[in-house]
């Protein structure tokens, strides 16, 4: 069963359609990457999921039943544009935010103390937010987002503004939350982190969803039968003759007698057959299928999408 479903969401702003018939399905326990260029409609979709705004049409389901305002307490949201009251004390403010998510004061204080200890910021409890560094404030924001143990978490560009050490800390916590079974929506431009932690993705461009599914399936789908071969020729035979008619050589780089060749398989041909042809004339070091990174897929799809839309 899908944990969260959005069906045929349409959202218009004055003279501009932010979301055009967008449907997504987020499986239970998934880390769902919401990708897309700036202005694609990601934040609009997130604001609809978090019930900050309502859609013009379309339906939303949370755990199989229609989404209701009370579900706000079961969802945690860390927006891209995030901030805290500058003049308020850190601890007091965290308790306030937790209580707005439906926690009791006592629970909030107890759990906050534990989190503060974990992140090593206990001594900041009585300090004002304006005294905190940016990274420190982000830690506080992260804590207040996950404190009420939401069943679904939404992170919009969570790593922006963090130093690498804190990014690692944050990733560790997000993965720990995934282990606990929390469903996570993750909106980012950072494709490396998408490959690292997402299990599913959806790509949105120009207010429309372009693709959605498990990340491995999508990457395999765009693996267009290209292979990377690294080998050391021994006999001086030409590669073109060695690989046979089923393969086309896309590129051939050589350095210190070591060749890196990219091959495209034109017809169905098992890898073993190719390797057998090579074995006598070259020392094969590695041979692997090239699976495109999310970055390449992203750029390819967005460009294609733009062309289609322009036509």
């Amino acid at each position: 069963m899908s944990f969260f479903v959005a069906q045929n969401i349409i959202k218009n702003y004055a003279g501009h359609r932010a979301l055009d018939d967008v449907s997504i399905e987020i499986p239970q326990g998934a880390v769902y990457g919401l990708l897309g260029p700036n202005g694609a409609g990601k934040t609009s979709l997130i604001r609809i999921i978090t019930q900050i705004t309502g859609p013009d049409s379309g339906k939303l389901f949370f755990k199989g039943r229609p989404l209701v305002p009370e579900d706000m307490n079961r969802i945690g949201y860390l927006p891209e544009e995030r901030g805290l009251y500058k003049k308020m004390k850190v601890g007091e403010q965290a308790v306030y935010l937790a209580r707005l998510k439906g926690m009791s004061r006592r629970d909030a204080i107890r759990q906050l103390k534990a989190w503060f200890e974990k992140f090593g910021i206990q001594e900041w409890w009585e300090r004002k937010v304006e005294e905190l560094s940016k990274g420190m404030a982000q830690k506080v924001q992260f804590i207040t987002t996950v404190l009420h143990e939401p069943e679904m978490l939404i992170f919009d560009e969570p790593f922006s503004g963090f130093d690498p050490i804190n990014v690692e800390l944050l990733k560790k916590e997000i993965l720990a939350l995934r282990e606990k079974g929390t469903t996570i929506i993750f909106s980012t431009h950072n494709m490396a982190s998408v490959e690292e932690i997402c299990s599913h993705i959806a790509l949105i461009n120009k207010s429309r969803k372009i693709i959605e599914g498990p990340i491995n399936q999508i990457r395999n789908k765009y693996a267009n039968n290209t292979y990377r071969l690294i080998c050391k020729p021994v006999t001086g035979m030409e590669f073109r003759q060695l690989v046979g008619p089923e393969y086309e050589i896309l590129s051939d780089k050589s350095e210190d007698g070591l060749h890196e060749v990219v091959l495209q398989c034109l017809e169905d041909c098992p890898a073993n057959a190719l390797l057998r042809r090579l074995l006598d004339d070259a020392e094969v070091i590695s041979y692997q299928q090239i699976i495109p990174g999310m970055n390449d897929i992203f750029i390819k799809l967005v460009k294609e999408g733009n062309i289609i839309l322009n036509e």
Binding site: T50, Q51, I52, M72, N73, I75, Y77, L78, P79, E81, R82, G83, L84, Y85, L97, L100, K101, Q141, T144, T145
Partner: peptide, 8 residues
């Protein structure tokens, strides 16, 4: 901070 608040 408002975006956090109105999600609650």
């Amino acid at each position: 901070i408002i975006e956090v608040l109105v999600s609650s």
